[in-house]
Design a binder for these strands. Structure first.
Lengths: 72, 72
DNA sequence: ATGGAATCGGGTAATTGGGGTT
DNA sequence: GCTGTCCCAATTACCCGATTCC
C-alpha cells in the first residue's frame, strides 16, 4: 500500500541555512549540493529546499572512509 | 458509474500545522499554498483548511536523489 | 459555558534561488 | 570543478488581533 506517511515517522529536515551553518559554508553552496545531487532534499511547493537531516548528520559524522584506528 | 456514497472512504486530512511540521515551514505558509492552489484542501464550515493527505505525501516523497542501494 | 490551542488575515522583515562573475 | 559574492525577484517567517476548533 502506498502509504508514505500516516503511520511512518516524518523525515527530519534541515533548511539550507541550517546545513550551511553546520558545514560552515555559504547557504549558496548548500543549494549547489542539492542541485548536483550531492545531498538529498525535497522541495516546498514554492521551490525552497528542505534537506534530509539524516544525510547531513551522516556526512558530519564522517561516515565516508572511516580513518584507521591508531593504537596508543 | 462512480459511486459517491456508501462505499466511499473519507479522504485522509491534515491540518495546516501538521503539514507545516512535515515541511519545516510556517503554518501560514501552508495556508498560502492552499490559497494559491498548490495544495488541495477543503474547508471547515468555520473556514479552516484541511489539506488532502495524499497531496502532501506525494510532495513529501519527491526527493531529489533516490536512496542509495545497499549491499554493494 | 469555559479555556487552551490552532487558524485566519494583513503587513513587513528575512531567507532563498538563479544567473553571472571571481 | 568548487566556493564566495553581487543583484534581483519570489518565497517564506514573524508580528498583531479576532475567530474557530475541540
Amino acid at each position: 500500500m502506498p502509504e508514505t506517511h500516516g503511520t511512518a515517522r516524518p523525515p527530519r529536515l534541515y533548511t539550507t541555512t541550517e546545513v550551511a551553518r553546520l558545514f560552515r559554508v555559504d547557504p549558496k553552496t548548500v543549494t549547489r549540493w542539492v542541485r548536483t545531487g550531492q545531498l538529498r532534499a525535497l522541495r516546498t511547493p514554492g521551490g525552497h529546499a528542505r534537506i534530509l537531516a539524516d544525510d547531513v548528520d551522516a556526512a558530519l559524522a564522517g561516515l565516508t572512509q572511516p580513518p584507521p584506528a591508531r593504537g596508543g
